[in-house]
Amino acid sequence: MGFENNDKAKGYWRENLRLVLSLLAIWAAVSFGCGILLVDVLNEVHFMGFKLGFWFAQQGSMYVFVALIFVYAAKANALDKKYNVQED
């Protein structure tokens, strides 16, 4: 067992799930949300020469995906340190 006690193990997993779920919420919002479900509404807005919904579908969502993974990696590593379960 890598954790000092059971509560710590539960706490770590709870925080990890919260982190993953909140990032996945952004993931779904930019792709399924802005790029698909809301595309017609957002297309009324113009952004750098693009219709905004179209931009999310063919550009924006991909930039956000990249950022999400780097944010996740940094936060997950910090979480490991907080609970002292990082690799040696």
């Binding site: 993931w27 179209f54 579908a57 999400l68 993974i69």
Partner: peptide, 21 residues
């Protein structure tokens, strides 16, 4: 055109699932 977005988002968005889950 726009319909091609399914491939652009689909083939990149999967990496977020991979990395996080």
């Amino acid at each position: 055109g726009y319909d091609g977005s399914v491939y652009l988002m689909g083939w990149t968005g999967g990496y977020v699932l991979l990395a996080l889950c």
